[in-house]
Nucleic acid binder design. Structure first.
Lengths: 273, 273
DNA sequence: TTGCTCCTCACGTCACGTGAGGTGGC
DNA sequence: TTGCTCCTCACGTCACGTGAGGTGGC
């Protein structure tokens, strides 16, 4: 009868809150019906409730928790407290946003890496080719250890200069022969900025002509690709130099999984001038 | 014994995941121990599990859900699908960020409003003063209705040009005498940009000299303040003109609560030149 | 009787955290 | 015996959504 008395269904339409939400807010004591029919248990709401609902919705849309909203509504006194809460909420959300910015950046990096790997697959001829490497800036750790320990080297470099990495990890091998136990190698990441950091060296790595071969498959089978590239160099009458590079276009841990049959590794043998 | 076999506690330190989380991931089938002692039920993890854990943590930090992570890890095949998921996640997070930007903006607006109201309280002398109003840009709705219906007018204007509002709402009264039922008034918001919108008029409102009095308390008591300001104008021998303004410095719904004793309304009577 | 609106439980969500209560080996 | 690490339930969180099963008046 009264124009300012709504059943739950009507009040739901007025406020944009679902009936279930109204039940819940009632149960929580956040938004009480102005009247409850004793025989049917039906809830009825008035204009004051509608006003309160508008405030609740506004605060909820600003991602205040229901207990927070309760408190804000209950203390109609303290303006300073309200201001504090608003500022605090702003800070909280700003912090979330900066975290999300980081996530987006990380996603973009992974996406770019995946794209680059796919393009490498598409572009790879899996034949020995001659190409010229540019000079690049790198961060690296040189070690004398087992080959299989290179992961630790990459981890150290990545930890130190992680955010400046701008390309695929690679290894420089300084031994003329194959050494399993006491190899002399350097784990490197190309970086986009001169970032000094503890325990890693940063320097420009000179480029130059080289033979290149992309190897597809698990690492233990790299030997066969080395055979192919060395034979090709030999046939063309070129002298190869040190250090040899292995660029890990696609491997375990870089992207998110490891199907060794799909690993891609580019072998680069510098041509002695 | 084996350097790559960890108890839960150790593995928790290695991975940075809590023991409870490791239990949970086990239960969910997301990250299985490499071995379980049949007699004690103790879980043991190896290096492969550590690698998987690193990937899980990376994906979790990018706010993928655990079911999503499951799927990403299970299909080591489809690169295109991974790229899709990454892109989709990026879009999702970017959308959240734009929502949060809105929230921050809304919070800033409310904060600024509260601050302005507090300053108005601090600055108000609660005496009749003479001041000069600047010309401002406003969006408004003019109505012929009951005074108490002005809320609807404000709602319409706010809905139409909400994001361009840059000041307190105010009313222009065009009647020389007090009218309850069939008053001629205009509900206005100052705006910062010429925003055309349906059903509201946008125009420059000219300024000029006026008498001003800040009224503190509920609206029904405005009459007393009108008496004071009119008497003051009379004493100073000035002719007042129309329309009269009422600026709602602080009232219900503008900020989040209504303690009518603290409402602030500024009455402005233009001085006829 | 059918349809509509309303009611009250009870359970699920998401990724764990928090106990409670107990075991096994040093 | 005390301390340590590990175990398995069971329940809580946050803001509701999703039924199930039932009522009352047109």
């Amino acid at each position: 009868m009264n124009s300012s008395s709504f059943s739950v269904g009507e009040f739901s339409k007025v406020t944009g809150l679902s009936v279930k939400t109204l039940h819940f807010y009632h149960e929580q004591g956040l938004l009480l019906p102005s009247h409850i029919d004793p025989s049917s248990g039906y809830r009825y709401y008035d204009d004051a409730a509608a006003e309160r609902a508008r405030i609740i919705v506004a605060l909820r849309d600003m991602e205040f928790s229901l207990p927070d909203i309760q408190e804000i509504l209950s203390q109609a006194e303290d303006d300073a407290d309200l201001l504090n809460r608003l500022e605090l909420q702003k800070v909280r959300i700003a912090q979330r946003m900066s975290r999300e910015r980081e996530i987006v950046r990380a996603l973009e990096q992974v996406i770019a890496g995946e794209r680059a790997a796919r393009e490498a697959i598409a572009a790879a001829s899996f034949r020995v080719e001659e190409k010229t490497l540019p000079e690049i800036l790198i961060a690296s750790v040189r070690m004398r250890a087992k080959y299989s320990d290179c992961g630790k080297g990459f981890a150290r470099v990545a930890k130190a200069v992680g955010r400046y990495i701008c390309g695929k990890p690679f290894c420089l091998y300084y031994d003329a022969e194959y050494k399993e136990e006491d190899a002399d190698f350097e784990t490197c990441f190309p970086i986009r900025k001169d970032a000094r950091a503890e325990g890693v060296s940063v320097r420009a790595l000179s480029g130059g002509p080289c033979y290149s071969l992309v190897h597809r498959g698990p690492y233990p089978q790299l030997g066969r690709s080395y055979q192919r590239i060395l034979r090709a160099a030999d046939e063309r009458g070129a002298q190869v130099a040190l250090p040899t590079r292995e660029v890990y276009l696609k491997g375990p841990g870089m992207i998110f999984r490891g199907n060794p049959k799909k690993y891609l590794t580019e072998i680069q043998l510098p041509i002695a001038s």
